[in-house]
Design a protein around this nucleic acid. Structure first.
Lengths: 229, 229
DNA sequence: ACGACTATTTATAACGG
DNA sequence: TCCGTTATAAATAGTCG
């Protein structure tokens, strides 16, 4: 952006390099600030000039917070095997990093549980509220999905039980050759399904229960959470 | 740089904000890289989106080195943990315990954030939902409380400023014995409140200055979050 | 959400003091 | 080194697919 096109390589002319550094530095800091404000992002920017001078920008001037957040985000055991010189020290370092991580996790966990809210400022509180609302949305849609799956499973089970009862009934009639009784089968079929103690159904349900683990509750076939909505 | 002029303030439209974030983020990273190469500078850039996702750039991908350099530049004191520790202690065991703890915390954290819900059964989901509802309740009441406090504080400040301005004005009139008009007290009041408190950093980027009038807080004394309620 | 396409606004390279 | 100015290159807001 200027009178000439610029190659992406180190500017050899010292003066030019310094001038360019100065101009671009302020541009970069400005843009860092802009994205931070416009997009509500947390930004930390550190620039060391060629000569070692430090320039920095950080959202809300909370460089330390952001760096800590960065550390806890990328925490790793990478330090552990990095040096053979003093393994003890490395273990200790890794351990203390991990401990920091645990503490940070515990803090945010408590916040997510609605505790220790007085440590948060307005923006953080707002953000937390939004996060929880979105969590709830996800959870409710997940519940809905599970509900549908369970209903579908239940229908399948019923259909299978029906089929089996039908087959057995037919077999029974076949064996007993009762010519006098031509009354409708569906009465017996319904009975066999509606009776929880029926052997057929019982084994069926047990089998499903072993895999699903959800299909019970004293009252009836449907657990209470399926009835609510 | 675009079809419309942009105000330096949070973009309220979520979609727009996200798109802008994405575009500006890549622009910012690019410029960070450019200044690093062109001017032979060491740059570390960390950006957290408002959803908490991390993006970063660092010269030669040596983020840690640059951060360490930053720390040592700012805090000369490098507080390496003190090795008061018992050399007999089983670091490995303690460490792996801690790691387990971290993993468990991470899992529940993710659940609280509405992620990885398919690892939960119905009962757990139900419990999670209730937990989040209660968290939200706490958060909202906390917000309310803060709002009240802030308003009270603001009123106190205004009252004090008013009193001070009034006193000064009276003193001035007393001294000069001149029956000038005494109406525009509010001018002095606004001035005394609107004056930012500190301006002490040299290498730090000065936000006020750089916004060139766009951010000039035209609205007044109250931060935006206070205006909504 | 991402890519492509403008019309504009910004950033900045070169230059002069 | 640090302003300003200016011509030009880049970035990007709005838009469509």
């Amino acid at each position: 952006m200027g009178r000439g096109r610029v190659q992406l390589r180190r500017i050899e002319n010292k003066i030019k390099r310094q001038v360019t550094f100065s101009k671009r530095r302020s541009g970069l800091l400005k843009k860092a600030h802009e994205i931070s404000v416009l997009c509500d992002a947390d930004v930390a920017l550190i620039v060391f000039s060629n000569k070692g001078k430090l320039y920095e920008y950080s959202t809300d001037s909370s460089m330390d917070k952001i760096l800590e957040r960065y550390e806890s985000y990328t925490y790793a055991e990478r330090a552990i095997f990095s040096s053979e010189a003093d393994p003890q020290a490395d273990w200790g370092l890794a351990y203390s990093k991990l401990k920091t991580r645990v503490e940070s996790l515990q803090r945010s966990q408590r916040n997510l549980m609605g505790e220790e809210l007085d440590t948060l400022n307005n923006k953080e509180l707002q953000h937390l509220e939004q996060q929880l609302e979105s969590s709830l949305k996800n959870i409710r849609s997940r519940k809905e999905k599970m509900l549908k799956e369970q209903k579908k499973n239940m229908e399948e089970i019923i259909a299978k039980a029906k089929a089996k009862a039908l087959a057995q009934n037919a077999a029974w009639e076949q064996q007993n050759r009762a010519p006098y009784n031509s009354s409708p089968h569906h009465v017996m079929i319904s009975d066999s399904i509606a009776t929880p103690t029926s052997r057929n159904c019982q084994t069926r349900y047990n089998a499903e229960e072993a895999t699903q683990g959800e299909l019970r509750l004293g009252k009836g076939l449907l657990p209470s959470w399926m009835l609510s909505g």
